[in-house]
Design a protein around this nucleic acid. Structure first.
Lengths: 144, 144
DNA sequence: AAATTTGCTTGCGAATTGCAAGTGCAAATG
DNA sequence: CATTTGCACTTGCAATTCGCAAGCAAATTT
């Protein structure tokens, strides 16, 4: 859980020191909303991240303590990437980004339906999904 | 209000197409929380943005419709940068980022106090500050 | 045993970043 | 009213980062 830069004491700036690029948050998105958890999974996402960029981002995300590498239960050739609690706690940020995009950008109808649902009871949605994600966490022996 | 890229139909990805760098959100932060509204104001912020980068970001933010350029009431030499409604609506995103940072990163005590206050009644805080920001908007003749 | 999958690493040209200096107009100053 | 200062940028250029393509070793499948 390394702390590299830190342009200022501002929390937004500090958050951007980790996530201020076009890819890092998408990896978290895939883990939160699409249950992706291997290198190959992330490579396959719609935005087509380059393999070297993916490797670099996974490393910094791990160094920042938002994800962790674990041995994959199904195969030694695979690596299991999991969110830490720090990573799971980004869910409200991801949700608000989507609510904003839903209002001000072009969003696919299927996603609009999902967001409408999530917005209906925001707190409960966050609590339920967070619990679910943190549940998986504790079953790895790394839960708090 | 230009639409340049669009890596996928995902709302998070689309938001990152605009804000996926280390500077854009900081400009919005300065406008929302520090009442900054001139080129010089933004240059002076703690993170020391380079002048060419600032000019480039202001342009894309304007093209994305989150800020607008207006003539400065006090001086012709100055330019007044203002948030649009689209920009003001980023407040919940900025808040959640800060709540996350408050929990998981190192944050200055004064800011922790501010965030504690904001969190106490999140909805009211957002409504009040949004109204305030949108109020300024309508006094420029560009309010909806 | 050979082919394929998986998680990377390496090379390299292209694009972006960031520092420093410069430019043109407006406003303040002497 | 001539000159300096302030303001909002632009330009040049070196350094870093990005992104495509290829390569690679270990594990797994056929």
């Amino acid at each position: 859980m390394k702390n590299k830069v830190n342009r200022s004491g501002c929390p937004i700036s500090s958050m951007l020191d980790i996530f201020g690029d076009k890819w890092s948050l998408l990896i978290i998105r895939d883990m939160v909303f699409s249950d992706k958890n291997t290198y190959g999974d992330f490579l396959k996402s719609d935005e087509k991240i380059a393999t070297n960029i993916l490797a670099a981002r996974l490393l910094t995300l791990e160094e920042s303590g938002v994800i962790q590498k674990l041995e994959h239960p199904g195969s030694k050739a695979k690596v299991l990437y999991m969110l830490t609690e720090k990573g799971i706690d980004l869910l409200p940020v991801l949700l608000e980004i989507q609510f904003w995009a839903d209002k001000h950008l072009t969003v696919l109808p299927e996603i609009k339906v999902f967001l409408k649902e999530a917005k209906k009871d925001r707190e409960k949605f966050i609590k339920t999904l967070s619990r679910q994600l943190k549940g998986r966490l504790s079953s790895t022996g790394n839960g708090k």
